[in-house]
């Protein structure tokens, strides 16, 4: 009979895996860390890279629930409209304009702020739901996997990410560890994905591009007042500049994952690596120790 020890409050319960540069190993680390930890404790993995969620490629689980997600956009009701242009003036994103005798709406630009509808003196705009994506929930033993997937053609990732985090808040008790596979870059989608995280792992590679985008990601995390540390993937490639930068800026490097052809081969075949490559299992152990994540099985 196994019992899980959970340590409350004093440990990080929501950990985001982010990067500046794309392709440095966010999904690789997220799925493997989640699966590794799920041997010891219940865990939630959420793929918030909604434009191209691919954590699911590595996890074959049972679909538990699936629901459409919508965002609200305005719809024009011509009859009461006096063409006063108030809506166009109030929209900060130029998503609604008056062109002569009609009101035109651009859903791709709309941020669902309701200003146009709420401030319309004639109630000539109503907010209506527009489907933007699908939220799926899978179970793989002790691991609960949430995938947020934006519909093809949808331009705005942020509302879908916000709804996925809202789903996590509502459906899981705060003492279950959550790992968030975040989108790349440093723009709105990343900020949405990490803003409610307790800790951010920035995964990078020791190349000039890796360093350049890491510095942007570090600046972003500092502005957001986030606790964060770095994991260097594909270690032994490139140069020492990432390490020098981290040392200079007092940024902890949690671990270094060696560049290894076997990892690439397994990963490209859609396989998990945590239990197949020893040095990588050890690197995951470093992360768990660094974050004091309990893995004790009594």
């Amino acid at each position: 009979m196994t019992q899980y020890q959970t340590q409350l409050k004093e440990q990080f319960m929501r950990i985001a895996v982010a990067s500046g540069k794309g392709g440095t190993g966010k999904t690789f680390l997220s799925v493997n860390l989640a699966k590794y930890l799920s041997q010891f404790r219940p865990i939630v993995l959420a793929d918030l890279d909604v434009e191209e969620p691919n954590s699911g490629l590595f996890l074959k689980g049972e679909l538990i629930a699936q629901e459409d997600r919508a965002r609200m956009i305005p719809q024009w009701i011509p009859e009461p409209c006096t063409l006063c242009r108030e809506c166009q003036y109030n929209c900060n994103f130029n998503a609604i304009i008056q062109a002569k005798n009609q009101i035109m709406i651009f859903p791709q630009l709309c941020h669902s702020c309701y200003a146009c509808a709420d401030l319309c003196p004639e109630n000539a705009l109503r907010m209506v739901p527009q489907k933007m994506g699908v939220l799926s929930r899978y179970r793989i033993d002790n691991l609960c996997f949430i995938e947020a997937r934006l519909n093809i053609g949808e331009e705005m990732a942020t509302p879908m990410i916000a709804q996925a985090i809202d789903y996590l808040d509502k459906n899981f008790s705060p003492d279950i560890l959550q790992i968030l596979d975040s989108p790349p870059g440093t723009s709105c989608p990343v900020i949405e994905a990490v803003k409610k995280a307790d800790f951010v792992i920035l995964i990078t590679e020791p190349t000039p591009f890796g360093l350049h985008d890491l510095t942007l990601a570090v600046d972003t995390m500092k502005k957001l007042h986030k606790d964060f540390a770095v994991v260097i993937n594909r270690y032994n490639l490139g140069n020492k500049d990432v390490e020098d930068y981290c040392a200079e800026d007092n940024i902890p490097i949690i671990t270094r994952i060696a560049n290894d052809r076997r990892i690439a081969e397994l990963y490209s075949a859609g396989q998990l690596v945590y239990d197949k490559v020893d040095h990588f299992s050890k690197a995951l152990g470093d992360i768990i120790d660094f974050l004091s994540l309990k893995t004790t099985v009594k």
């Binding site: 994103f93 062109a99 035109m104």
Partner: peptide, 16 residues
């Protein structure tokens, strides 16, 4: 100099 949606707003001005 608009951050977003310069195109539709310009088109609206052209129509006006």
């Amino acid at each position: 100099n608009a951050g977003h949606g310069a195109g539709p707003n310009t088109a609206s001005l052209i129509a006006d």
